[in-house]
Each structure stands twice: as C-alpha cells, then as structure tokens.
Simulated scan of single mutants.
Amino acid sequence: MAEYDTETVVHEEMTLRNDAKMTARDVSVFYGQKQAVRSVSIDVDSHYVTAFIGPSGCGKSTFLRCFNRMNDTIDIARVEGDIDLDGRDIYDPKMDVVQLRARVGMVFQKPNPFPKSIYENIAYGPRIHGLAESKTDMDRIVETSLQRAGLWNEVKDRLDESGTALSGGQQQRLCIARAIAVDPEVILMDEPCSALDPIATAKVEELIDELQGRYAIVIVTHNMQQAARVSQRTAFFHLGHLVEYGPTDEIFTNPKADRTRDYITGRFG
C-alpha cells in the first residue's frame, strides 16, 4: 500500500460551524491502550444524510457510537474531545443519557425488534418517555411511525403479531419506526442494510431518502454505491483518521486526498 500523510484532512467546501445539529471537535476514542479514532472533527447537518465510509476497522462505527454515547456501555472505552447537540456538550455529567438517546436514535446492523407485538415495539419508547396521554394518542404515534417507515400498509392488520415474525427487511424498518416513535432529532444507522437482501435494501434506501430533511441522518456503510445513492455528505475514514469530508458527489468524482482516491478506485479496502 502507498505511504500517506496521516495528518492531512481534507474538508472539501465544508467549513466547520457552530450552527450544525451536532458538532464533533477533536474526538478520539480509546479501547484500553488502543486508539481507534484519532482527533476527528466533523459537523452533522439536519438537512443532509451524512455517510461514513472506509475499510473495516477504520473507526467509522466507533465514531458513530460516540454521538449517542453507546461507547459508554463498553467498560474499556474512553472518549476524548467535544461533541455537542444543539450547542450542548453531550458528555456533560448533567446530560440525561436516556433523554439523549431519545433525541439521537440508533438503528443497528442486525435488526433487533423486541420480543413483543409490532404495536408494542413502537409504543414502548413513547410510553416510557410519557409522550402519549391516551390510547388514542398512542395509536396515532404507532400509525404515524409505521407510515413514515413505509411499513404501515404491510402490518396494519397484524399489529398484535410478534415483531420477530416479520421478514428481515420488515424488522429493520420496524426498528427504524421504533426510533422515529420517540420523535428524535438525529438518527444514526450502523450498516443498516448489511444483513438484508437487495430488495429489502432498496426499500430501506428509499426510506432514508424519504426521511431526509425531517431528521439529521448519519449512516455507516461499507457499500460505496449505497453511500453515493443515499447521502449528500460523505466522510472517509482510514486507520482511525478522518481523511476527507465533503459533498458526496465531489468525494466520489473528484476526491482531493490520495487515500480517498485509492479507496474509491479499489486500490485497497
């Protein structure tokens, strides 16, 4: 592999701002003595889908999990730097992590519906957060969430059936509907289509396109074609570094960093 200047980061036409939905500044992540993410700064805008791409083990999923403090669940993980949501430090000791994860939802690589009915999968979050005052309110939240996830017409007559009985693609859309149900501001997606067949993948990608602008969305994907299809901003990670960040079409057609160009053209990955 070619030698690269690991300190060079290219922000193509992307000026770091203070008015982005979420901002990360000089974020590093350690697992014990091993450093997985190295001083990353990036903005997440409400108006765009942002894709994180890069080879396996490059730190993109680890960095994604910083945005709703999922790394807190790993005893040996340590996060340094600053991440703000609407200007507030999410690692402030006074931050309510449960409320944070309601505002910054997460969809995982493998669909993980609760072993409950389809209805209860959606109702669980709004119930514990007190978002519905009546059964009518809850019914509305469930229907709206399933509609936004493109699943309502497929399950409206079987809401009492188990969510685990759905197909893999339907389960993933159910998990997206579950995240939407608590009225988040940001949705994080960690390789949401990697376990799905092409038809289910296409439906999830259509859903991401429909949700764009309603939520700030960040997706980690190993599929560069998917990143090109669904995102408007792309960040390329390599060996724990953010190498290049900019408009998706520019990253894929005219990358500025040699490492980005080599990855995009298949020289490594």
Rank of each mutant, 00 (worst) to 15 (best):
A2E: 15
Y4I: 11
E13T: 10
T15S: 12
L16C: 08
R17V: 15
N18A: 14
V29N: 02
F30A: 01
V37A: 02
V44M: 13
S46I: 01
Y48L: 14
I53S: 04
I53Q: 01
G54D: 02
G54L: 06
P55F: 11
G57K: 05
G57R: 01
G59T: 13
G59S: 05
K60H: 07
C66A: 06
N68W: 10
D72M: 05
D72H: 09
T73C: 01
D75L: 06
R78C: 07
V79Y: 01
G81W: 09
D82I: 12
I83W: 01
I83R: 13
I90A: 06
Y91C: 12
R103P: 03
F108C: 00
N112Q: 12
P113C: 10
P115Y: 06
G125W: 12
P126R: 08
I128A: 11
A132K: 08
E133G: 15
K135M: 03
R140C: 05
I141R: 01
I141D: 02
I141Q: 00
V142I: 11
Q147P: 03
Q147N: 10
A149W: 03
G150Y: 12
L151M: 02
N153P: 02
K156Y: 13
K156P: 03
D157P: 00
L159Q: 12
S162Q: 15
G163T: 11
G163S: 01
T164Y: 08
A165Q: 14
S167G: 12
Q170G: 10
Q170R: 02
A179M: 04
E185W: 05
V186I: 11
I187M: 14
M189K: 06
C193K: 00
A195M: 15
A200Y: 06
A200N: 13
A202H: 13
V204E: 13
E205W: 03
Q212F: 00
R214C: 09
A216F: 00
V218T: 06
T221F: 06
T221M: 11
N223A: 14
S231F: 07
F237G: 02
H238I: 00
H238M: 08
L242A: 05
V243C: 07
T248E: 03
T248Y: 01
D249R: 14
D258Y: 08
D262S: 08
Y263N: 11
T265D: 15
F268L: 09
